[in-house]
Structure formats: structure tokens, C-alpha cells
């Protein structure tokens, strides 16, 4: 295994984060803080507690997921798309490094960055609302699994995209709506029965629900199902990446 190559790709991607600190970290943290001020403090103070959890605290896991998902996808997709776009990917492709080592470097860095953002948001939330984490180990497990799965998904989008428009389509038009409609700001039980059923087809619901359970032991669906869904998503992304690498999709002619 070419450990040195994994290290330099990882370091290079992390360096990009520090070089664009405001865009990479400050921006998502600021926007989440705004959500806390508006929904948590201003509006939240007038909304009843949901299943015994004050509204301000209730939305913390959802808001973390919102940032984690969008950041994981955009970080990882940009990380591989940009060298493809500028042509510098030739160097990675001609190096003595396997596709899986390339994947570990890029996806590892994107997931790390998302993890850092998630933890910063958690700390920020602590300034606005009272937080309790009932199952810290599960919370970290969900956090890491989500970061890895969606960074992998982002990597796939980065490989697939042939222009900047395509790169933006999935995060903007798919991920954000799914997260907003996946119980970020509400419990599914608050919806009319028909919409409850429809929402069950939204995979993000399971992530938010499982993550929220690790905080408050309150969930819309069974935590085991949540875990299975994220593992299934991880497996699907892994299979797709395996196929892309095997065929050299958009990387090798």
C-alpha cells in the first residue's frame, strides 16, 4: 500500500480547507448559528416541547445532519472534480497508487472536514440551547458513518460531473430538500398520515431519527432500522465506486 501517497492527498485536501477557512468552516457554522437564533431561540421559545424535548434542543441533531450531509457531498465532490477540471488529475492517475488509495485520501479528508464542522456546530449549539447526549458512542458512530457515506457519495458526484452545474445540482436539488423534509425541524408524527407514509421513503429521515435518538432517546423510526439504512447507503455507494474504478469511469479512457 502506498501510505505516503494517501498521506499527501489527505494533507493536500486538508490544507485546502485551512486555506479557505471562511468558506470551508466559518460559513456553515455561521449559517447554523443563524438557524439556532431564528428557530431555536426566537421561534422555538414559542413552540411546545416535542416528546419532552425543548424545540431548540430538538432541532440540534437535524441541523448537524443538514450541515454534515451538504458539506460531505460538496467537499468530496469538489476535491476530485477540480483536478479533473484543471487536468491535474493526470498526476494522480499516473502515480503508483491504486484507486482505493486515491479514494481513502480524498474521501478521508472530506469526511474529516465534515466531522470537524459537525463538532463545531455541536459546540456552537451549546451556546444557544441545553444539550444532553444520551448515547455518546452511538452519536459518534452515526456522525462518522454519515460523514464517510456522504463523502463517498460526493466523490461519486465529483467523478460523474462534467461541469460545475452538474456538481451543484445534487447538493442543491436533492440533498437539501431531502434533509429539510427528513424531520430536521419536526417530528414525523406531527405530519398528516399520508405525508408520514411518504416521508418514510426519504432516506435522510432515518439518519436524522437515529442521530436524534443518540441525543434524546427520541426517534421517528427504530434505531436499528436507522443504522441499517445508513449501512445500506454506504454499501451502495461503495459498490458504485467499485464499478466506477473497475471501468475507469470518467477517469481513464
Amino acid at each position: 500500500m502506498n501510505i505516503q501517497a494517501i498521506k499527501v492527498i489527505y494533507k493536500y485536501e486538508m490544507l485546502r480547507t485551512w486555506n479557505t477557512l471562511f468558506q470551508s468552516i466559518a460559513s456553515p457554522v455561521l449559517s447554523t448559528a443563524l438557524y439556532f437564533i431564528v428557530f431555536g431561540s426566537a421561534i422555538g421559545s414559542r413552540i411546545e416541547a416535542i416528546e419532552g424535548v425543548p424545540y431548540g434542543s430538538f432541532i440540534v441533531p437535524g441541523l448537524m445532519m443538514l450541515s454534515l450531509l451538504t458539506q460531505s457531498v460538496s467537499n468530496a465532490s469538489f476535491g476530485i472534480f477540480f483536478p479533473k477540471f484543471t487536468g491535474t488529475v493526470y498526476e494522480v492517475m499516473s502515480a503508483p497508487i491504486s484507486f482505493y488509495e486515491i479514494l481513502i485520501g480524498y474521501v478521508g479528508a472530506a469526511a474529516t472536514k465534515s466531522l470537524i464542522i459537525g463538532l463545531i456546530i455541536l459546540l456552537t449549539a451549546g451556546f444557544f440551547v441545553d444539550l444532553q447526549i444520551a448515547h455518546p458512542v452511538w452519536m459518534v458512530t452515526f456522525l462518522i458513518l454519515t460523514c464517510i457515506s456522504f463523502s463517498l457519495f460526493g466523490f461519486i458526484i465529483g467523478l460523474w460531473a462534467t461541469n460545475f452545474e452538474k456538481l451543484q445540482i445534487v447538493p442543491l436539488l436533492v440533498i437539501t430538500p431531502l434533509v429539510f423534509l427528513g424531520g430536521t425541524f419536526y417530528s414525523v408524527s406531527m405530519l398528516p398520515p399520508m405525508w408520514q407514509t411518504i416521508t418514510l421513503f426519504n432516506p435522510v429521515l432515518y439518519l436524522v431519527s437515529g442521530f436524534r435518538w443518540s441525543f434524546f432517546e427520541v426517534s421517528d423510526v427504530n434505531v436499528g432500522i436507522s443504522l441499517s439504512v445508513i449501512l445500506l447507503f454506504l454499501s451502495l455507494c461503495s459498490a458504485l465506486v467499485w464499478w466506477m474504478f473497475k471501468t475507469g469511469y470518467r477517469l481513464k479512457q
Binding site: 502506498n2 505516503q4 492527498i9 490544507l15 484543471t86 487536468g87 491535474t88 493526470y90 502515480a95 497508487i97
Partner: peptide, 27 residues
């Protein structure tokens, strides 16, 4: 390999890009 096009990451420094290349090749 020295490619035909001047394909370089614009915001890297000369030193960093060299260190990156060396590392990619496992050195």
C-alpha cells in the same frame, strides 16, 4: 511524465506542489 498542457493547481506554491508529487509516488 511531463504533460503537454500546463496543468498546474494555480494556488499551490512551487514547493508544495513538488512535495505533493514526490509523496504521490510513494517517496
Amino acid at each position: 511524465l511531463v504533460p503537454q498542457e500546463l496543468t498546474l493547481a494555480a494556488f499551490d506554491t512551487v514547493w508544495n506542489t513538488l512535495c505533493f508529487s514526490r509523496g504521490l509516488f510513494g517517496k
